[in-house]
């Protein structure tokens, strides 16, 4: 008799446990944070158009292509409206990946390379490092456990715009260096 009561309670505990866990999972799944709303500034958009027009001043076609690739990278990784960081950056290239190709195509002097190298690195650190940091915050933002504290991705528009302009600064500096010539 006692055994039957224990068995009954075990079944009840199990059924209740299952319902609670499934309900918690469904709630967590619905609450999972997926998108962030980010917009580029008008100044950045105007600057980008200006730099795109200035591309025609580059005479060497290989060099022009190399700079165009950097501009395309900027456009491909630009946010406007609601964006999913995972979809955008999961297989994303770093701006550092364009360094060698640009240097080789544009036949830059060592001095110019020295200046632009630091610009490439600064640009990568200022924006891509932050995006990498966001990956982890994004991951932690999915509240899979009710005992785990969750973080929401903290990149707001201001932080995005400030750091985003580092890529544009690089493009501007590159065009300026190429304009000045050797």
């Amino acid at each position: 008799m006692m055994k039957e009561i224990v068995k009954k309670y075990i079944f009840m505990v199990s059924a209740l446990f299952s319902i609670v866990v499934v309900c918690m999972m469904i709630t967590s799944y619905k609450a999972a944070y997926k998108e962030i709303s980010l917009h580029d500034t008008n100044i950045n958009k105007v600057l980008l158009n200006k730099y795109k027009n200035e591309l025609s001043t580059i005479k060497d076609s290989d060099c022009k292509k190399a700079v165009e690739e950097i501009v395309k990278h900027y456009e491909d990784t630009s946010y406007d409206g609601k964006v999913d960081l995972r979809d955008k950056y999961f297989n994303g290239k770093s701006i550092l990946g364009y360094t060698l190709k640009t240097f080789d195509s544009c036949n830059l002097t060592d001095e110019q390379k020295g200046i632009l190298s630091s610009n490439f690195i600064t640009s990568s650190i200022q924006f891509e490092e932050i995006v990498n940091e966001l990956y982890f915050q994004y991951e932690l933002s999915v509240p899979d456990s009710w005992t785990r504290s969750t973080l929401k991705p903290t990149m707001d528009n201001v932080r995005y715009r400030i750091n985003r302009s580092s890529h544009l600064d690089l493009i501007g500096d590159l065009i300026q260096v190429l304009k000045e010539g050797k």
């Binding site: 299952s18 866990v21 499934v22 999972m25 469904i26 967590s28 799944y29 999972a32 997926k34 995972r86 999961f90 990956y135 994004y138 991951e139 999915v142 899979d144």
Partner: peptide
């Protein structure tokens, strides 16, 4: 049933995550 539901939900979670 519970195990299968949890596994399906894990699969759905999996599509949302990077790791």
């Amino acid at each position: 049933l519970f195990t299968l539901i949890v596994l399906v939900l894990c699969h759905l979670f999996n599509n949302k995550l990077l790791i």
